[in-house]
Design a protein around this nucleic acid. Sequence first.
DNA 1: TCCTTTATAGTCAATTCGACTATAAAGGAG
DNA 2: CTCCTTTATAGTCGAATTGACTATAAAGGA
Lengths: 244, 244
Amino acid sequence: MSAEVPPGYDPYAFEPFAVTVDLAVFTVREHVLQALLIERGEEPYAGRWALPGGFVRREESAEEAARRELAEETGLSGPNAARLHLEQLRTYSDPGRDPRMRVVSVAFAALVPDLPEPRGGGDATGACWRPVADCTGLAFDHDRILADAHERVRAKLEYTCLGTAFCPAAFTLGELQQVYETVWGVALDRPNFRRKVLASPGFVERMPNAPRRTGGRGAPAALYRAGSAATLQPPLMRPEGRTP
Amino acid sequence: MSAEVPPGYDPYAFEPFAVTVDLAVFTVREHVLQALLIERGEEPYAGRWALPGGFVRREESAEEAARRELAEETGLSGPNAARLHLEQLRTYSDPGRDPRMRVVSVAFAALVPDLPEPRGGGDATGACWRPVADCTGLAFDHDRILADAHERVRAKLEYTCLGTAFCPAAFTLGELQQVYETVWGVALDRPNFRRKVLASPGFVERMPNAPRRTGGRGAPAALYRAGSAATLQPPLMRPEGRTP
DNA sequence: TCCTTTATAGTCAATTCGACTATAAAGGAG
DNA sequence: CTCCTTTATAGTCGAATTGACTATAAAGGA
């Protein structure tokens, strides 16, 4: 490898890499933020938990690979696939992050509503939801990826309308507030929360139907669906203004 | 290149890619936001302008490659290299983004103060600063990368202390305000701007020295340096709350 | 029939923000 | 030297937002 290599496509400068995608898939189940994990069936890290993912194929982009892997892992398809937020997180490229060869991984964060069942499909031994607080000791650098994705989601709830991605197609403001409280780990004042949400144009819109009761007890709540806005102005900040 | 497929990897799934970094380097010069471009000397796109960048080498991460390329292209080294903000933007992986082979590019955004001179150093035919508004018709998908980076910088000025990355080690509040006005393309009220900045803990801190006059005319201004905070709470929002 | 839980409507004071006014300290033009 | 323009910096004031509460109604369960 000469030091005076022109930019371009000098054969000595070109190094072959494998490119993979890794997915940090989040959902809110039973008042807890959970992540989707798979149990590795092969070396290295056989038997360890890891984020779902796989190789990017020759004819697809990283986004397409991520969507394909997500469908394989969760059984997400058709109408469900539409109610899914998938965004690129960042790329992890440390030499040595895979013990055998040079692998660059494009990480994605995905937010899905509470799905019926995870499907341990395809190549993974098993797949399951696990509270993010318990997701430690993952394979490769997946602890780090998951932590980065977790903080990204926490931060994006502040200034985007992403919270609705955790909710089903129709939801109550109480359910939306639960999402915020679960992801941020704080309690929010109910009247103030609904005042903020309803004052944010395009965040939620009322469904032209009848209300229903959700958890059984309590007064029936109005149903809302996600609005057309993508960002929140002004933002809905978490208390204690922490961004650790 | 070792065609040997490591054990445990599906040989049909593994596809070799080239991995590059592309840099969107921004500075504020003469009240205009400018980006660093190089003129390509080789096919494809010979003679066209492009973002600086290059291949990731076998023993380095994408971050290290980006820092290396930036040093080669701008002559940034030693003390200057410290006053530099470099952050990963996202990865571009469309098949066909390079006409000849499968290239995945990890894009970075860099913010530097007004440097003495760009250096068309090393491998590039020529390098120059160009107002971002005039940066069109770039090679590959670099128009898109630059646009994404531009919007990222605009957005991050709102909720981080990044604005100081465009300023020299010591700066006046007027200079910092110029950065915001230039990047956002709006005029800000001077008293209100300084009130917000000074009320944000850790954004700037006064230098324990004497004031000076900057542009020649006008009263002398106090000098500040970047504080220790990374994020702004509450954010400093651009007027008209636009996030196109 | 209570009692607990949840939804929803208000109130009120403190804080913040946007739009201004005012004053001082340069440098340049004449 | 004397305006005049430009910039820095200190305030003011009313409107809007926010955080902390109170109040009331409508469930379901014991």
